[in-house]
Design a protein around this nucleic acid. Sequence first.
DNA 1: ATATAAAGTTAGCCTATTCTAACAAAATAT
DNA 2: ATATTTTGTTAGAATAGGCTAACTTTATAT
Lengths: 218, 218
Amino acid sequence: MISNTEENYLKGLFMLSVTKGEANVNELSKLLDIKMPTVNSMMKKLAEKKLVIYQSYKPIKLTEEGKKAAALIVRKHRLTEMFLVEKMGFGWDEVHEIAEQVEHIQSPLFFKKMDEILGHPKIDPHGSPIPDKDGNIDNPNYHQLNECEVGQSVILKAVRLSSDTFLKFLNAHQMSLGTIITITAKEEFDGNMTLSYGDQKSQVFSYKACERLLVEKQ
Amino acid sequence: MISNTEENYLKGLFMLSVTKGEANVNELSKLLDIKMPTVNSMMKKLAEKKLVIYQSYKPIKLTEEGKKAAALIVRKHRLTEMFLVEKMGFGWDEVHEIAEQVEHIQSPLFFKKMDEILGHPKIDPHGSPIPDKDGNIDNPNYHQLNECEVGQSVILKAVRLSSDTFLKFLNAHQMSLGTIITITAKEEFDGNMTLSYGDQKSQVFSYKACERLLVEKQ
DNA sequence: ATATAAAGTTAGCCTATTCTAACAAAATAT
DNA sequence: ATATTTTGTTAGAATAGGCTAACTTTATAT
Ligand SMILES: [Mn+2]
Ligand SMILES: [Mn+2]
Ligand SMILES: [Mn+2]
Ligand SMILES: [Mn+2]
């Protein structure tokens, strides 16, 4: 049995491990907004349960079992977000908090039905990949918009670190997944980019915004 | 803030109070499958929070605030069951356990959407009334089938104490809400009733089964 | 009117999850 | 090579929610 609390730690570890394959106590503490000593004890407990590999002062790694459990929670989270947007009329900026709760529902049938009704979606409303029933996930190799060059034409595929406020910002600027963007200019000084897309002929996006836009080259 | 645990106690009290307007520790203990001393401490806590009126050795009553909170949880439970059956293709015998979890989701918007999508339903898949947004509930005055007379024709309106096994039993006997039933015979000895409905010309239902069928006279 | 049974309470203990304060190790800067 | 900062650990305490054992009160049956 994995408690809701333990599930949240596993999911946090999973997200932090995407790049480096490991995470540390401090990062996890910040991500979950839980103090380090608490995270430390939980790591001992999860190690006891064979869900993580953990030795004092060393980075934390998920075991295969832990990785699969975590992926299945991420699957439930992202399926839920997709269901809320596609079948219940929510905006992509309204679903994360609800999914954060629904992801803990214990009922394989519930999520199987969601998956079927949605037609086995591969991505969530923010473009993040949905792990399959076995916990396998394919991390597509998108580029951050801030690293693209002037003159390039790209397509918005996903949003990174998608807080509700950032998503509302994108709504306000008529930017959504699939939008085709041409980079008109790029400021060396602060990384500001001037973009042309849809109706917008020269919108200036900050470095902080561009960093979060994951695109694919046309 | 009312925790999930507290919500379950409030809901239990609400159900037990339907008839007498009050409940006692022993009943609640059995309903929730939690030992009496634990229930006792929780009653003190809920009294502290002004959600129940409680004095030692006296029956427990919900305050107006407690009653409303409980009704809103019941609302979420029943809306969920309706959504699962009507919009996600579940059978009426598969939804209770899931609703038991979903009822604790904190998101008024989530349940508002459900309610809209369902067209503001007044009853759940088992015929139980759904409290409105203010927590008001109208308990319709149905009759238990076992109390009806031979020769009477009635309509099945709701199922009481609807366990999954009982609902599966009804499925197997092609009995569902709306079924028109004629009472052919009634055995004095054990209360068995012979029923005629739909394709079934003379099905014998035990007292225990009839007790759980709530009907309206034609 | 007792005696017995059922219901309710108290006391004390347990696990899960969190925190703060103090200390230790590792990483970074001078 | 130190000194300082950052990261990690330990110890001790708190709160929520649950349990058993023992005792008390109320209800029921002789
Ligand atoms: Mn999310
Ligand atoms: Mn969560
Ligand atoms: Mn139910
Ligand atoms: Mn519940």
